[in-house]
């Protein structure tokens, strides 16, 4: 019994540990060596899915700290990734409050809205308050591939949830 509780705790901590690891390690989702335009914001997919499905295992405070770490590693002004992640949390929580049951299509659409607002805030703050400049095409490709890959990760996370954590949808 104790062993199974410990395992459950480890499985529950999986998404947040993955988020921290993605933010702090060199692992990236920018495969420009293979396909030059491919890049993906995996963190926001991870946050949105788990905030929508199991908010109790994705605490806001942890996401906030992971955002700060991401800013330090990437060289952005501190707090900007946290803000972008918090917008994702806000959308996820709002959709969760408003909907009784969700499908992959509805999650995909609401994720698109969340990503638009989150990236809008992120890049407008960077554009106005830092000296960094960005390529609009790169931002476009990044958003496109993030949106495109969402259903794949949705399915993978769903499998993880059902097999290791246990389904407890709204």
């Amino acid at each position: 019994m104790a062993k199974s509780t410990l395992l459950n705790k480890i499985y529950n901590a999986g998404p947040i540990l993955l988020l921290y690891y993605l933010c702090i390690s060199e692992v990236d989702t920018n495969l420009e060596k293979i396909f030059e335009i491919f890049s993906l914001n995996f963190q926001i997919i991870l946050i949105y899915f788990w905030v929508l499905k199991r908010p109790e295992i994705m605490a806001n405070g942890h996401i906030f700290v992971a955002g700060l770490i991401n800013d330090v590693v990437m060289g952005f002004p501190m707090g900007i990734s946290s803000l972008s992640y918090l917008i994702i949390i806000f959308f996820g929580t709002y959709v969760r409050n408003k909907s009784v049951n969700t499908t992959i299509a509805s999650d995909w659409f609401t994720f698109f809205m969340a990503m638009i607002f989150s990236n809008l805030l992120f890049f407008s703050l960077l554009n106005n308050f830092s000296e960094l400049s960005f390529s609009m095409s790169k931002i476009g490709y990044n958003m496109f591939f993030t949106l495109f890959m969402f259903p794949i990760f949705w399915l993978l996370f769903n499998i993880y949830q059902m097999t290791l954590i246990g389904n407890r949808d709204v």
Binding site: N60, G61, F64, L68, G79, S82, L83, L86, F90, F129
Partner: peptide, 15 residues
């Protein structure tokens, strides 16, 4: 333990 609004304010202050 923290509301989204309070963390948004905190992130803005840090930023």
């Amino acid at each position: 333990k923290f509301s989204v609004l309070s963390l948004i304010f905190l992130a803005l202050i840090i930023f």
